[in-house]
Design a protein around this nucleic acid. Structure first.
Lengths: 227, 227
DNA sequence: TCAAAAGTGTTGTCGCTACACCCATGT
DNA sequence: ACATGGGTGTAGCGACAACACTTTTGA
């Protein structure tokens, strides 16, 4: 790839969420340059002059993880005068949802010092990244109620308990198992694959898939998806 | 004011909503320079190098209308390569909600050729402004359901019919009068001022105010505001 | 046989919808 | 007196919350 010009007052930052072992986590990178050397930070970078804005966070995510075709959403744009220590930089924040099961930590210069950290346990971050992270988490938590995005965090096939676990981690609520299952199945957008879990040391759960077509039909009928 | 440096690849655009005569309207400006001379456009401008990002749309709104202390919210940031014809410009879109009753069209070079246009009747717009406008309207329509922002469109004192009219214009639904009033009054956030409309050629309606304190309490109790 | 999670029904309550008529005011 | 919008109550239904035990599987 030829050298490309960066727009040097204009960056993107990514909050990459994943769900693993019952916890919502995000991916942070340990800074290896000044300023704020050694601190944890959101993965980010500048936008190229010949690159669509939305393409920049996807490129960054690919460089870090090798993943393509990932759900990303703009959180907001942050432009206080003093947000970056050395000069004026405006940044656009995106969040991404990845299936940790698909994820393989890429080996490369960019990917050194990557860490999945539980969102309940985020350390001090560089610059104003704590504010950016909080905004992304708040946005995600808001979206969860009206959009089945959290399926992007689960494997293609999942049990109803998996689903409940993710909802509970994102909404910070806890649901009654029977009521939760009734509600989910009544939506008519989860399709029983007939398969079951393997190698679990307890009764194996049925595995479901999200049925996108049924979901679109539901929307067309004017029905809401609400948790 | 001394000359200030503009960040010339970086702009803001404002979608300024108002509610008047039963219709949701937005404020557009007729362009008097190339490119797209003579077309309607969203009011916008560049961000100064020594100005917080969020301050830029407020400054622009003040220059146009003389209004300060207006509710503004970021809609999103648009950065496709070809969105602006002559060079690469990334723009942040905000929407504002103004009480048309407070508004006085300012006389000044910036304010010439300002037009309130019903959102159902928007003409062809310059550049990609139609896309920006649609995004702002969609965001507003989404927020209406979960936040009592539409009160920013009404005078301080309003009748329940005024309120219903705004809800209907924003949600594109129509509500049963009795049910609507019960729902609103049950929320406990509208306070009867004891005053009534004047100079109406029919029975005068009671006037209500939004009770911010009661609203905050409601949120603390974990109750939702949902329409 | 024990541990661990899967799976399953009923009942009461509350909020929503549907629906039609009289009232106050200005012209 | 008429036109215009303001203001009101009830009954039925459906969605949600609360609640505890049996089943399956591997160790």
């Amino acid at each position: 790839m030829a050298e490309r010009t960066e727009i040097d007052n204009f960056s993107i930052d990514c909050v990459i969420f994943g769900f693993d072992k019952g916890e919502l986590k995000a991916l942070f990178i340990k800074r290896n340059t000044e300023p704020d050397f050694g601190q944890m930070a959101l993965p980010g970078g500048f936008v190229y002059l010949d690159e669509d804005l939305d393409a920049a966070p996807m490129r960054r995510l690919y460089d870090l993880t090798g993943l393509t075709n990932i759900y990303m959403k703009q959180v907001g744009t942050f432009g206080k005068l003093d947000r970056y220590p050395t000069r004026r930089v405006i940044t656009v924040v995106y969040y991404a949802l990845v299936r940790v099961s698909d994820y393989s930590m890429k080996v490369g210069p960019d990917a050194s010092e990557l860490h999945w950290i539980s969102v309940n346990n985020v350390p001090k971050l560089a610059f104003d990244h704590r504010e950016l992270f909080d905004a992304a988490l708040a946005k995600l938590q808001e979206q969860v109620h009206i959009d089945p995005i959290l399926l992007k965090l689960l494997p293609k096939e999942f049990s109803l308990s998996d689903l409940q676990e993710v909802y509970e981690a994102l909404t910070l609520e806890s649901f009654d198992k029977r009521n939760f299952r009734k509600r989910m199945l009544n939506l008519g957008v989860f399709h029983d694959t007939g398969r079951k879990q393997k190698n679990v040391s307890h009764r194996a759960a049925r595995l479901y898939r999200f049925d996108k077509k049924a979901y679109k039909k539901m929307l067309k009928r004017g029905q809401m998806f609400a948790i």
